[in-house]
Design a protein around this nucleic acid. Structure first.
Lengths: 367, 367
DNA sequence: GTGAAAGCGCTAACAG
DNA sequence: CTGTTAGCGCTTTCAC
């Protein structure tokens, strides 16, 4: 743990190159309007001295930080049990890195952390924020609004005025643009899963929901209901069990389901982890998958789905791409900066202020 | 994505409270030596204006950033498949938060990223760094050394001069202290696992290693060999298969093992994920676990071990605590800052510059 | 094109 | 105890 060395300053580089600080600054920041040979001399001096600009000093004058906060508002352990979060981070990291931005990670573990995060965001330490895993009653959106930090949400926020989630619609450019977010087509994905089960000839199709205080869970439930109502013309409430996106929750739900409807012949689980729990209970009860009961998950966490027994049919969403897209949207908004118009304006695939990524059904053995 | 508002400055607070900037600064930074009523007036002004200090300006003069970089040098997908990384991050985050430090996440995906990270670290943007997942040939340690950033490593670095990993020994205070790191007792944990298998009456005990370019894998292998040599008086090389910490790798290794030694009666896998793969192959080959073959993992990733079939006996390490400890060590070193002495000096549980956390054998059904 | 000068918002001596 | 005074290292008008 060596002592931090004091780095050379602009001044030093200027002296060595025999120019003024201003010139060095210009060269370091792209070199516009500095003649070739001079610029070369400066670059040489920079090289020799190992000069690295002091970001604090720079930020002080530019008011930019080239840093983005990633806020993960998941007090529970769930985030840590499934790789969702890591994949999302990876996508974000790649995109930020490509634009020379830093990633400041803000984990919210408990109630008290909200204030801390809000303070940080308000402190003008970052140029923007990427926020995940919002629950319906989360105070964060309000705090962020107050802080006035440009923000992109991961997953449709619950308070947005546009509950449509199934496809692009004409966006009214004049209204309050509402929150900017990136999500996958939860509702459409759920529909395709249930339709697939229907196509398999299944009729008593159950749904194990996710945590219903999150829009992703609600949207998937809606998709399930869409198909049950439209295609089968019925929507038996006994076939829906509320759960929480965890394997344990999936087990409990599956047991409940087996009790309620012993003749269930298919299960659409709100995510892969839940499906895993269901699979285990089905096996314990001697039901064969998919012969007796077909099972479909959601997410396609490859290590989970491929290693499941039997390998899990699921609805895939490109999580890493979602992360990347969130970062891109934020960065674009930051550079655009015409504060009147919505920042996602001109963005392809945008439905209103949300960008909805498509999902794909991945067929494996379980359905 | 609202426009960032321009925040009030110290100046503004000073004016409103009718004092000088210096006084406000004092109050904001702990309020030492400011009389009660005055301080109260300042605090009121701060409150009313919603003043938040500008960290950039502060850093510029204090040369502190209250920020720590977390570098994850795992180009592969492995980190994202197991929750190890997330747990570690959580521990770090908690500790940093408690000390009002920010966490800057630096993910290394490819070769080019090393330079970027090195530049960032050298740029004096953070007070210290926490570095993970080092492989033997990693250029990072050198780069970090050059950057002169106080650093604590997660896992014993390969080039450290103290390969002992099995317990505390007298540390020589005068020599080059070497890298500071936190690790679990990989070797001791491996020993306890193998001893447990021996105690079960098993004799043909195999080991599926981790990626041997990481010290954790090497240390676990050493622990295995210790017991095989000491207790059983032999060390059959055919019983050791090199693998890579992944479930897929575990499957391949188990197949290989079954081919080499069909009469194997126990497997100690380098981690839980590997054990999972082994379990699957054993089942496919009709071997009962634990009756025919006992299986032990390492890590105790609860979602993995408890959901395994059968539930996995394993060696538990407290990953979150490791993260927390790394952060604590770094922060302590930063505040101590007597640059001669080793920064971990005076730290309990320290063997040399490494802190080794104990492991526990968790008995479940698989062994 | 290039340099000189004026701060960005804050802390840390140093006076008073 | 409190205020005054210098900068921290950089960017950015503004002259030249």
């Amino acid at each position: 743990m060596t002592e931090a060395v004091s780095r050379p300053t602009l001044e030093a580089v200027a002296a060595r190159a025999g120019v003024s600080r201003a010139t060095v600054s210009r060269v370091v920041n792209g070199g516009d309007g500095v003649r070739g040979p001079l610029a070369a001399r400066v670059r040489k001096a920079v090289e020799e001295l190992g000069y690295v600009p002091n970001q604090a000093a720079r930020s002080l004058v530019t008011k930019r930080h080239d840093a983005v906060a990633v806020v993960i508002a998941e007090p529970e352990t769930r985030v840590f049990a499934d790789p969702f979060f890591a994949l999302q981070l990876r996508g974000i990291s790649k995109e930020l890195t490509a634009h020379d931005n830093q990633l400041v990670l803000l984990l919210i573990e408990g109630r008290a952390d909200h204030a801390r995060v809000a303070r940080y965001l308000a402190g003008n330490h970052v140029d923007g924020a990427l926020v995940f895993s919002l629950h319906l009653d989360d105070p964060l959106p309000g705090l962020i609004q107050d802080a006035g930090v440009p923000t992109v949400f991961g997953g449709r926020p619950g308070w947005g005025q546009d509950p449509r989630n199934a496809g692009p619609g004409p966006a009214r450019a004049d209204a309050d643009p509402g929150p900017v977010y990136v999500d996958c087509d939860n509702r459409g994905g759920a529909r395709s899963a249930v339709r697939h089960l229907v196509g398999l000839g299944r009729r008593r199709i159950a749904h194990i929901t996710g945590a219903l205080d999150q829009t992703s869970a609600v949207d998937r439930l809606d998709g399930y209901r869409d198909v049950m109502a439209e295609v089968l013309g019925r929507d038996d409430p006994r076939l829906v069990v509320e759960s929480d996106f965890t394997p344990g929750g999936g087990e409990d739900a599956m047991r409940e389901l087996l009790g309620r409807c012993p003749d269930v012949d298919a299960v659409f689980a709100a995510n892969d982890l839940t499906a895993l729990g269901a699979l285990r209970v089905l096996r314990a009860h001697g039901r064969r998958v998919p012969e007796d009961v077909a099972v479909i998950g959601f997410d396609d966490m490859v290590p989970v789905t491929e290693q499941a027994d039997p390998p899990l049919t699921t609805v895939r969403q490109d999580i890493e791409e979602m992360g990347r897209l969130m970062a891109r949207l934020l960065l674009r908004g930051l550079s655009g900066d015409r504060d009147g118009g919505g920042p996602a304006a001109g963005c392809p695939d945008a439905a209103g202020n949300g960008v909805i990524l498509p999902t794909t059904l991945i067929r494996r053995a379980s359905a």
